[in-house]
């Protein structure tokens, strides 16, 4: 996703009520994170599960939160997603970088990249791919899910 779009996505979510952006950096969304750091709204955790835990504390305090991560961190967090976020119905928005979407990506990303759609489906996690063209509509969808207290994920492809 283009630099400008990533910044617009951050500003759109922030201006529409998402107060906290917690996660572990991924180069796929570096401009999104940079924009958040500039606005002093980003908290970087040591692991994605930790980020989800912190965001849960925010959500329990009625403060809307997004957790950003690479898909490697997303799959590391499966137990936390099922036994905390889904079990207690914690309303969060995930932003997940889809490494291994292209076969030309680095080898360590290929297997996860390939099985990622199946994992998301197995979890019953509502998700949409966000890109330079649909970003506003997809952000709007995520905000609607959040208002209904439904967990959802936005996926950014690594082109």
């Amino acid at each position: 996703m283009k630099e400008l779009t990533q910044k617009q996505v951050f500003d759109y979510l922030f201006n529409n009520g998402i107060e906290n952006f917690v996660g572990v950096p991924d180069s796929t969304m570096k401009y999104f994170i940079d924009q958040g750091i500039k606005r002093n709204k980003v908290l970087i955790a040591t692991r994605e599960e930790e980020a989800i835990g912190i965001a849960t504390g925010f959500a329990l305090s009625n403060s809307p939160s997004l957790v950003f991560m690479q898909n490697a961190g997303f799959v590391n967090s499966l137990s936390t997603i099922t036994s905390l976020v889904q079990l207690y119905k914690i309303p969060l928005i995930f932003l997940i970088g889809w490494r291994g979407y292209k076969k030309s990506d680095a080898p360590e990303h290929l297997k996860i990249g390939k099985i990622q759609p199946k994992i998301i489906k197995s979890l019953g996690l509502k998700s949409k791919i966000i890109d330079d063209h649909n970003w506003k509509k997809v952000c709007e969808w995520a905000l609607q899910q959040h208002k209904k207290s439904t967990l959802c994920a936005l996926i950014i492809k690594r082109e």
């Binding site: 955790a45 599960e49 930790e50 980020a51 989800i52 835990g53 912190i54 965001a55 849960t56 504390g57 925010f58 959500a59 329990l60 305090s61 936390t80 905390l84």
Partner: peptide, 8 residues
């Protein structure tokens, strides 16, 4: 994760 939820 108790310490992380506590931090939030």
């Amino acid at each position: 994760l108790a310490s992380s939820i506590g931090l939030g």
